[in-house]
Design a protein around this nucleic acid. Structure first.
Lengths: 386, 386
DNA sequence: ATTGATAATTCAAATGATTTGAGTTAATCC
DNA sequence: GGATTAACTCAAATCATTTGAATTATCAAT
């Protein structure tokens, strides 16, 4: 989380490292590719790509996928990711539970676990996490020597700020260096993030955000969060707390007062209905519950405000909506929200819809935690614009 | 402006290029540095830095600045930027004028010009720009072979969007590729940007933003703009229109309705007073004009809203306020705005003030245009966080 | 069916930039 | 004054990429 040295020099070894990642990223994005094709995309020579591919195949990260004849010339041998070539662990620490997922290099969840927590102190969580990790490796022995790292999602904001977030619900975590603790406990490289950022990465790696370099992700957590991806990388802000959109006031109320899990729950509770569970919410929606529909109408309006802010601040290619809500409700919101007219995104011939539903479902943030690691393994910081 | 290839591979030549920039950036940030010191900062060997410094000295970009004895050992030869080692041209195209500035490598304005325009079509502006450039080179012949590029600032937003901006005031520019036109006319590498982004870069290169990797710049243009710097680079959004904060509605009105040049002008005009000129505004302020003070009181409140949005969306190290306003008014706003309590930036022990006044004065955007070029010459895209 | 054009791939040598290791210089510390 | 420390230089080694020539396999045209 600390701010890194602003610049780092380059040498042969670091170039190679970078180029390996670039090749993997390119192949992943395209599904399969030939050497020459990759070389053109990366502005490298075929020979270089050949060397790197030999190395990556040796390491088990790439697989031959036959030859593809495209016009004249020798048909190119196609290469694709070997899903079993690398694994990333995602851990989501909630106040009352720990979710975990093991993703393969392709971004597929191989094993997932959800464990309830009655003690969320660091010692307890770390012990539980170790146990989960052990069980997962036992189920997927191939992963043992191929772990790329672990992504940890914890409720933000990080550090003591003016926002009393869920952070207060995790006892004993405020003062500790969580990343260091997990690194010690699991002996893996660690990336720490909040839920919205992780969710955005989940979409980038295996959802709607694939191939989109700049997008924003509006996340239904307890509150309303925002993950920002620019040039293929997360924009985290100086202290890792960028995207706390829920606390922005519009017309006297905070955005998340009208658009969040807590918001529906309160609204429905006031009508004497229980909407704490996702399935309960879905059932209410399916039955056309009048109270829920009333809430949705307000939520659409609030979402419109949020869109205005996000689009005008970031000018993203698209905004993805997801998180702890049933898909049907997310779809309803996407379809019934009037997109802002006064917006830099309001223009003709857009290649993407301005607002779309996320694809990664209920465990988005957990998957995203692992996706943070995959993204590191498959992409290099963006080349400079000229 | 187009989205660049997402990844580019690296090779020896590109590494050298990158390392040269990194050395220059490091030296610039520190004022003067020794070889070994630079090497440590960039994770390179002294030998490499030695080679690069020899090359940069040869090229006239670095100068020896004596030896510095720091404790034991051989005192390190200090190197500093040679201000005359490189120049960047900044051009600001306004509907009724063209401003230009020639900056040296150190970021100092060597020559500036302001020319009124009665014809702002591409042909006229390009011709005028060529003439200005010619006059500047005549005044600073040393710059002739040392031009790094030209930054162009034009009113955004770019492309046809839902925002009817000043863009419409420039006739004939909507459909053309402005960057290509300027590149042809001046035979220099071109960077195109809006005023707020450029202003942010001006602060980063020679103002309050020096050494700050992540900050936001609230810019008084005709409306209210925002420049975002993250990891030392501009966040421009997918289509170059990030930061159009002025159009975000708060309590029914747009932010720029209460916080912009147009806003004061209208407010004062309603009171029968002329505030179109910066000096007129300053005089009104100095005389404690009641109407102006009333506007300021509202502006402070609006600025508070803007701060809430910016801080919670970006979590910057600081927010810089500047643009077409007299310094005394900017200072007043900085000092009298109640900083938002509900904000991720509201925390103890901040290394920077949350809101500060910009340092680059009235020609900020013009200087910033050139600063965009300098920033390219002096920094590499940020290394990856781990 | 043969021939020529095209394009992917490989091999071996060259190139470019960084690193390595030994040696020199000039300060401070004791 | 000698030991220690640190910056700097030189020459050789190393690493990864590039270059250029040769090979292979397909398509297209005769």
């Amino acid at each position: 989380m600390a701010i890194q040295p602003l610049q780092q020099g380059s040498n042969a070894e670091r170039s190679r490292h970078r180029n390996r990642k670039a090749v993997l990223g390119q192949v992943r994005a395209a599904g399969t590719m030939g050497r020459a094709e990759i070389a053109r995309a990366l502005a490298l020579t075929t020979q270089t790509v050949s060397n790197i591919i030999a190395e990556l195949s040796e390491d088990g990260m790439l697989l031959e996928k036959g030859r593809l004849s495209a016009g004249r010339g020798l048909p190119a041998i196609q290469y694709g990711l070997n899903p079993e070539g690398g694994y990333a662990l995602g851990i989501e620490v909630r106040p009352d539970a720990v979710f975990a997922a093991l993703l393969d290099l392709q971004g597929q969840a191989v094993v997932t676990e959800r464990v309830a927590l009655d003690d969320n102190t660091p010692a307890a969580v770390l012990g539980l996490t170790q146990a989960i990790y052990g069980r997962m490796l036992a189920q997927v022995p191939a992963a043992t020597n191929r772990m790329l790292g672990v992504g940890i999602v914890m409720p933000g904001p990080f550090g003591v700020t003016g926002i009393a977030g869920m952070g207060t619900d995790l006892t004993g975590w405020q003062e500790v260096d969580a990343a260091a603790l997990f690194e010690d406990a699991l002996d893996l490289p660690v990336v720490l993030s909040n839920d919205a950022n992780a969710a955005a990465m989940a979409e980038r790696i295996s959802g709607v955000g694939q191939g989109i370099a700049s997008f924003a992700y509006l996340y239904f957590g307890a509150g309303l969060g925002l993950g920002l991806v620019h040039g293929g990388q997360l924009v985290r802000g100086a202290f890792g707390n960028a995207g706390e959109i829920g606390h922005i006031p519009v017309n006297g109320a905070k955005l998340e007062d009208g658009l969040s899990r807590l918001s529906v729950q309160r609204h429905m509770a006031a009508a004497g209905k229980d909407a704490r569970d996702i399935d309960a919410l879905e059932a209410l929606f399916q039955s056309g519950d009048a109270d829920l529909m009333a809430w949705l109408s307000g939520a659409c309006e609030t979402l419109g405000h949020a869109m205005t802010i996000v689009e005008n601040m970031f000018d993203p290619q698209t905004v993805i909506l997801g998180g702890a809500m049933p898909d049907v409700i997310l779809d309803y919101l996407v379809q019934n929200t009037a997109l802002p007219v006064v917006s830099v995104s309001n223009k003709a011939d857009l290649p993407h819809d301005r607002l779309v539903r996320g694809a990664s479902g209920r465990m988005t943030a957990t998957l995203g935690a692992a996706a943070l690691i995959l993204n590191n393994a498959l992409s290099t910081p963006l080349a400079q614009a000229h």
